[in-house]
Design a binder for these strands. Structure first.
Lengths: 192, 192
DNA sequence: CCTACCGATCGGTAGG
DNA sequence: CCTACCGATCGGTAGG
């Protein structure tokens, strides 16, 4: 409870996120995590209820950041293309600020316990719908026909999935330096 | 040896690719694979030397397809933008024709045995260099400054990583229908 | 937070 | 290809 115990819990999540990112959730054992934290395997259970709780504690805050970011951007009064740009910025910012968490969020979510997985998929679907509706409006405004907004969404989202690997390797400056290239590359297709 | 045994081996690889794609390499047990094939766990070892061999047998043919595709496209006499288009087509074709294998190739390669991993990374690096050099030439031809070709490569490659998931779900028509959208989205940024 | 341990499951083998 | 089994490791618990 106390300060000490709370820090220990955070430490467990942080070390686990690194390990899950490197070796995967299924490839990381409770003993790996304990060793990294510097305590005995059994001692982990004074702080956590089980392996699945750790995964949830890493993934859900990431989902919340994107959910809240989407809500905030949606409430702003500006054109949809500008909102898409803000969402791209959000992705780059999260990659830079939480590279280990977002790696797990992206690649290991399928190992979430059934109830957590349901919650995760629900949030993801909502996010996808919001993002896709913005793309749809841009395409309609520009009178672009025969372009599937959901496909464009998937391409944009996936095209950003190198950023957290760069951030994990400390190449944060490279991301910052290429922020405009990234936006130009993704938004140019939507301008016309 | 014989026909029977060769088919069995292929069957093991095919069922393993499905399972590795669904549950990950580390999350799939030898017993899972045996059950899917319909034999006892120990019997698998009449056909394979171990779990790692299966992963290699799934990943390496994919790497070869991309390596050979790159070599062939590089030997053709045409402008670099057209070559990039051909590489995009190659990715879509592999996703459509080998969705299970390419999923494993994309997401589970890190579990390859050290020697196989080395070979894999070498092939990947060569592919990346070829692709990036094409982007670089296009950017130079169009006199586009301050755009990092490697970043553009990563964006293009990753932007296509929804296709094999669609193909695995049988949505092959959706991919086919959007082939031009995909190319337009990715190549428009390089035209100008 | 540690020591000592649980039953279950892991990848893989011997012998037929 | 099966039966029967190996030692190692898994996630997790009891008691202090």
């Amino acid at each position: 409870m106390t300060r000490r115990s709370k820090n220990r819990k955070e430490e467990i999540y942080i070390e686990a996120a690194k390990l899950f990112g490197e070796k995967g959730y299924a490839g990381t054992s409770i003993r790996d995590i304990a060793e990294q934290v510097g305590i005995e395997p059994g001692s982990l259970y004074s702080h956590i209820s089980g392996k699945e709780e750790i995964l949830k504690a890493i993934c859900m805050p990431c989902a919340d950041i994107f959910s809240r970011g989407m809500d905030e951007i949606m409430s702003i009064d500006c054109d949809p293309l500008r909102k898409i740009e803000m969402l791209i910025d959000l992705h780059l910012d999260v990659s830079i600020n939480h590279p280990e968490s977002i790696t797990v969020f992206n690649d290991e979510w399928r190992y979430l316990a059934p109830d957590d997985l349901k919650e995760f998929l629900k949030a993801r679907k909502k996010y996808q719908k919001g993002f896709t509706s913005l793309i749809d409006r841009v395409l309609k405004d520009k009178n672009v026909r025969k372009t599937n907004a959901k496909i464009v969404f998937l391409m944009i989202i996936n095209s950003l999935k190198w950023t957290h690997y760069y951030a994990r390797e400390g190449k944060i400056n490279t991301i910052a330096r290429n922020r405009n290239t990234v936006k130009k590359f993704l938004l140019q297709s939507l301008w016309k």
